[in-house]
């Protein structure tokens, strides 16, 4: 650049005073703090996360320890039989219910998170490639999506589980296979809108590779949608996992999955309703708080609200 360039008249002279401008992460933090849904949802999710991680420390008993002399003790607020030793009571085999619920959070969160993450990666790669390249590649992607949409999800999951078994890894992969299409549909159509923008043309005119354009120019614009879908899908994955376990095709006993707890409690539903209520409430609160957090993330990262 030539030396002779004099500093041009800058549009306003505020520059001289070096105004302290909050950096983008700083701004993001401020907006997160003022978003009530995000705070509440996030706190509950973090609560479940902490419980899951520290279950071995926090839980009063071993989740697999049976004690048939202490079967079906009701929760502590049952005036007649409740004891503080088992605040949430015990199940039909005399295992401490609070302990099993805490370990159940591990299973639910792990399966929900990894199923959502794996399907997000697979689905958005497929969607962005179809949307960006168009033409035949897009036709092929649409074909894949249509085939997936034509499959009855839960039935396919059931048959796959019966073939591959109910290990946690198998469940994660099967659930990812169920959920990738939503990411693909959304990222594909968003990418189609994005690729006609001039900033993509500008990147192309720089000789940027296509992979790089997709990752660094398209992906940040699709991320919002991916996170929102991921939060919804994580919630759905947790429910589907519970449903599969309830049907006896998911996580196998004696692993304490919430769905399995529901299934085991079913026979005692009318006399010991807490066996159903606790895992049900746990699923309900986890799912709704994940959704609230997802909504919050969307609001916080949306470019419209940055000012």
């Amino acid at each position: 650049m030539p030396d002779a360039i004099q500093s041009r008249d800058i549009e306003d002279q505020v520059d001289e005073f070096e105004v302290a401008v909050p950096s983008p992460p700083e701004l993001m933090k401020r907006r997160a703090k003022s978003h009530r849904g995000f705070i509440i949802g996030g706190s509950v999710v973090i609560f479940f996360l902490l419980v899951a991680v520290f279950a071995p420390v926090l839980a009063p008993f071993d989740p697999y320890d049976q004690d048939l002399t202490r079967r079906l003790i009701p929760p502590v607020w049952d005036a007649a039989k409740g004891t503080w030793e088992h605040p949430f009571g015990t199940d039909a085999l005399g295992r401490d219910y609070l302990t099993r619920l805490m370990y159940g959070a591990q299973i639910s969160l792990m399966i929900g998170f990894f199923a959502a993450a794996v399907s997000a990666i697979v689905g958005s790669c497929i969607g962005m490639i179809g949307g960006y390249f168009g033409g035949r590649i897009d036709n092929f992607v649409m074909y894949l999506i249509n085939v997936k949409l034509a499959l009855p999800g839960l039935l396919v999951a059931l048959s796959l589980v019966s073939v591959f078994g109910g290990s946690i890894l198998a469940l994660i992969l099967i659930l990812s296979f169920l959920f990738w299409d939503r990411y693909a549909v959304v990222t594909r159509s968003v990418t189609q809108q994005i690729r006609v923008n001039d900033y993509i043309t500008a990147a192309q005119a720089l000789g940027t590779s296509r992979t790089r354009i997709i990752i660094s120019e398209v992906l940040p614009n699709v991320m919002n949608q991916i996170i929102v879908i991921a939060s919804l899908e994580m919630a759905v994955a947790i429910i589907v996992e519970a449903a599969l376990s309830f049907l006896g095709l998911g996580v196998q006993p004696p692993t304490p999955s919430w769905g399995l707890l529901l299934s085991e409690g079913r026979s005692y539903m009318f006399f010991m309703p807490y066996l159903i209520n606790f895992p049900g409430l746990a699923i309900f609160f986890l799912v709704i708080s994940i959704n609230m957090m997802g909504d919050g993330i969307r609001d916080i990262t949306a470019p419209e609200g940055r000012n």
């Binding site: 306003d12 505020v14 401008v21 950096s23």
Partner: peptide, 13 residues
């Protein structure tokens, strides 16, 4: 500076 943009905009969107 060359195109006349104030430096404080560097982190803006």
């Amino acid at each position: 500076r060359l195109v006349g943009l104030p430096k404080r905009l560097i982190h803006s969107y």
